[in-house]
Amino acid sequence: MNIIIEYLVFLIATIFVEFLALFLFLKKKPFQVLFYSILINSFSLPLATYFYQNILNNFVFTEIIVFLIESILLIKLLSLKYSKAFLMSLVANFVTSLISFYIKVFT
């Protein structure tokens, strides 16, 4: 697959999977949650890719940083409690990490 399409497909897939995970927790305002998922992932995924490719080639550490940044963004955007935001971010990022790990290892 063309590398540009590969990057874009991965972004769209991440947005969609994280949206589903967030929406399962919130169960309200699907369009707002989708919009925030687009914003959060458009910010975190490119920077995480850069960090992983150029700064520290460590998948777990990169995912931890992404989880922390996304938690803070969720708190700010959705006015959530810290515990709920951290849990949502943990679940959303765990699912996307599993998928990317699967793609990395098995494809």
């Binding site: 910010f43 490119p46 963004l73």
Partner: peptide, 9 residues
Amino acid sequence: LPFLALIIM
């Protein structure tokens, strides 16, 4: 892309 996302946020 990340810059635009951040500005909107």
